[in-house]
Structures are given as structure tokens and as C-alpha cells.
């Protein structure tokens, strides 16, 4: 049971030190630890995915010895600042970039199966509160069932229903802040009878700014 408790992460003090020692020295113990890691891994993935700080990749790249090239956005910004007097052509070439960075830029969430896989739906939240959810691929739903769309704002624990989601997609008004997680669950026809997801959560993704 020490192997199971080690994987669960509940050990403290001398028990924890003993487990670390056995993991190093005892192949039977190490195999038991691996078996428990396999058994419990899906439960760890039930923690909602979250968007890491944007500089995290650079930190990892530096720590693993890569030469880090500056982000294209920063480079273009410097170029733009250095050449304010330059031709309109440059301004035009940067227009797309500036639009993306404008405060009114839409937030986007890519809704994919929670354990990975191809994104099936794309959600775009406009600054005016319009939320547009469109299928990326053909989505099929068993008869007598509907998909239901849920919003889980950052820091909250209970998703709010945004209603049934037709497979062809839907446009609705729902002002949602950045970081809100959108979830799609499979529900009885007409939507969840309880106000909370009752079927499996099939897809999820978090609203983030494009960059």
C-alpha cells in the first residue's frame, strides 16, 4: 500500500522518505508505483486545463539550453516604433497585428475532447458580448440526446448553462471574461434536467486572446 499512497501523494515525513528510497532501490516497489500511476492518471486529468503564463515556454526553452528567438510580435512592435515615419505600406502590413492586439479583439476558445484530440468546435466571444460557436468538423449526437453548452468562469466551480447547442452551431449573447472555460456535455434531449451537467463532458476549452 506504500506504493499506492506514494502515488496518491499523501505520505509525509519518514514514510515519504522510505518510499523515495524504495523507488530507487527496489524494482518490485518501483513496478507497483508505475502500476498505480497508470491506474490513477485519468483522475489527474480531471483537473481543468488552464492557460499557462505566456512566458513559460521561453523559460522552459532557456532551461533546456535552446536559443530563444524573440516573439515575432515584440520584434514587429519594435520595428514599428523605430519607423513611425516610414511609409504607409508598413502600417498596412502591421494592421492585422494591431487589430489582434486591440482591446476589442475577440476571445477564442478551441473546444477539443478533454483528454486531447482534434478540436471539434471553435467559440469566438466578441467584445459586444456575442458568443459564436461553430463546428470545426461534423459533430454527430446520438438520437434522443442534445449537446449542451456551459460556461465556467475562472475561479468558479459550477458551470452555468448557456443552453442547448445545435450541431450546426449557435450564436448567442453571453458576455464572458477571458479565462472562462467553455464545456459541452451530452444531455437528454432538451438539455440537462438539473441545471448541472448530467452526461459526460465531451469537449472543453478556455477563452483566450489571440496572439
Amino acid at each position: 500500500m506504500l506504493a499506492a499512497e506514494y502515488v496518491l501523494g499523501t505520505l509525509e515525513g519518514s514514510d515519504a522518505r522510505e518510499a523515495v528510497r524504495l523507488l530507487r532501490d527496489d524494482p518490485v516497489f518501483a513496478a507497483a508505483v508505475h502500476a498505480w500511476e497508470e491506474r490513477l492518471a485519468p483522475l489527474a486529468l480531471s483537473a481543468p486545463p488552464a492557460v499557462p503564463p505566456p512566458e513559460l515556454w521561453d523559460r522552459i526553452a532557456i532551461a533546456t539550453g535552446a536559443e530563444v528567438t524573440p516573439l515575432p510580435a515584440r520584434r514587429r512592435l519594435r520595428f514599428w516604433q523605430a519607423s513611425t515615419g516610414a511609409a504607409l505600406a508598413i502600417a498596412a502590413s502591421l494592421a492585422g497585428f494591431i487589430l489582434l492586439r486591440a482591446p476589442s479583439a475577440p476571445l477564442v476558445a478551441v473546444l477539443a475532447p478533454l483528454n486531447g484530440g482534434v478540436p471539434l468546435l471553435i467559440a469566438t466571444a466578441e467584445a459586444d458580448g456575442t458568443l459564436n460557436v461553430q463546428p470545426n468538423k461534423i459533430v454527430s449526437v446520438p438520437s434522443d440526446h442534445d449537446l449542451e453548452l456551459w460556461a465556467l468562469p475562472q475561479g468558479e466551480t459550477h458551470p452555468r448553462s448557456l443552453g442547448v447547442l445545435p450541431v450546426a452551431g449557435r450564436r448567442l449573447t453571453a458576455p464572458l471574461p477571458r479565462g472562462t472555460e467553455l464545456l459541452v456535455s451530452l444531455e437528454p434531449r432538451g438539455g440537462s434536467p438539473t441545471g448541472a451537467p448530467t452526461g459526460p463532458v465531451l469537449y472543453g476549452g478556455r477563452l483566450a486572446a489571440l496572439n
Binding site: L45, S46, P159
Partner: peptide, 26 residues
């Protein structure tokens, strides 16, 4: 302190075969 998110965590489990088995056993 965190609210009990157990039902939520369990709902999220059911999107892989291993997750389904673990969900059933939990």
C-alpha cells in the same frame, strides 16, 4: 480552502476508456 469540486472532477473523467473504468470504480 476550496469548495468541494468532486462532482465536477468526476464528470470530467468520462472522456477516455481508462477514465470510464476509473469513474465506475470510484
Amino acid at each position: 480552502e476550496q469548495e468541494d469540486e468532486t462532482p465536477d472532477a468526476l464528470t470530467r473523467l468520462v472522456s477516455s476508456a481508462e477514465g470510464v473504468a476509473l469513474h465506475r470504480c470510484l
